[in-house]
Design a protein around this nucleic acid. Structure first.
Lengths: 216, 216
DNA sequence: TATATTAGTGTCATTTGAACACTATTACAA
DNA sequence: TTGTAATAGTGTTCAAATGACACTAATATA
């Protein structure tokens, strides 16, 4: 076994914070000295990786209590020309319209951008977003992860729209409802949503909020 | 954003080298000062993560040209009581009976162990193996990854046995052949295997060796 | 030459997935 | 108040995929 190297790579976490806003999948970007990039930064000496990602997201975007999942670790030596950095990437899922998901405390330091119309991002952050998006779309098909993008109460039409936006294709309403109800992962609240639309829709909630279950 | 921390975690790679040996799924372990563990070690200052994993596997086990895939990054602060270490874990797949897969150059420094009867491993390496095993079993179901465990030429019975060993259940011979042949990922060589058995079996090879394709 | 062992093959029933159109309920406008 | 526009909600039918199942073929060995 070779001996440890003299110098060590800097270890960071980068977080891809996803939310459905309007009719699009968007990512929350953080302003950095050289341009726009993902929230994140160096991992503390004795800090857990998940905790570091959660802390940085909270500090930089004022978001907490989000679903967070490790994505991949990016470590090409040339990914940062300045100094060697290895990034443990995460993605976060934010519920639709969760309170201050507009412009958080940091004011001008963050902005939302549609994942389809991202500006050029610093380093390899564009690639990280692309990988995260693939993973999210893949997991829609074999897990209940979409519920992490929903508010506490939601209608089936809203849930279907989330799927359609991420997958980029329209789904059959009856088949969608049949499948999602058969999964037994949501339940009707008994309330109706009367938000401007015509006929009010039944509201549902996750049976086991916070839990992502594999399906099929 | 907080400033970089004074000290940095040590970054390592750990590799879970899988192979089918006998009728079992086995892992190649490396002797360490405090007991048996996974091959791996510190990442070089300007070394790519994948390259580091590949190098360490080659140095410590004399294995090269293997399939390598990043698994997960383990960074709990208490995973190493001595000093903070973050490990980017990989798993490797070795073809059955690939030359010196017995006892490589390092002599006494490595040993094979059945994944079901592992000795106690250093640090959290037991957990890493468990995660790798789950991932491997999962990928069997939606990819052609099993081919990475096969030698250049193999019979359908051998390929089926590999699936059965990893999944831990027996499969129907006719259904298995129907499915795998329909995938169009292997082709008959025209040769027959006459290795002691009774009726000789047709030999097959991967159409696109080295490539792992998603299926279904 | 008889026997033991593994290789190789097809059908049918069931389940799953995909396509498809109409009625119901409300808000709002005339 | 009544009509209209908009979204919510609901079953059936067909096709495709999956899973269960048993026998013949080819060779080595006794």
């Amino acid at each position: 076994m070779n001996s440890p190297t003299a110098s060590l790579p800097t270890l960071t976490t980068d977080i891809v914070p996803f939310a459905i806003r309007g009719e699009r999948l968007e990512v929350l970007l953080a302003r950095q000295t050289t341009g726009w990039g993902l929230p994140g930064g160096p991992v503390g000496v004795d800090e857990d990786l998940d905790a570091a990602a959660r802390r940085q997201l909270a500090e930089q975007t004022d978001l907490s209590e989000v679903y967070l999942e490790q994505l991949y670790t990016f470590g090409r030596p040339d990914r940062n020309p300045a100094r060697r950095m290895v990034a443990v990437a995460y993605f976060a899922l934010l519920p639709i319209a969760s309170g201050s998901v507009g412009v958080p405390a940091a004011g001008d330091a963050v902005r939302w951008a549609a994942v389809d119309e991202l500006p050029r991002l610093v380093l390899d952050h564009g690639e990280i977003v692309a990988v995260a998006r693939c993973r999210l779309a893949a997991k829609l098909l074999y897990s209940t992860i979409a519920l992490q993008l929903m508010p506490e109460c939601f209608t089936l039409s809203e849930l279907q729209a989330v799927h359609e936006i991420i997958l980029g294709e329209s789904l059959d309403k009856r088949n969608f409802r049949k499948r999602v109800l058969a999964l037994d992962c949501i339940e009707a609240t008994g309330e109706l949503a009367r938000h401007g639309g015509r006929r009010p829709a039944r509201l549902y909630r996750a049976r086991r909020p916070g839990q992502v279950e594999l399906i099929k």
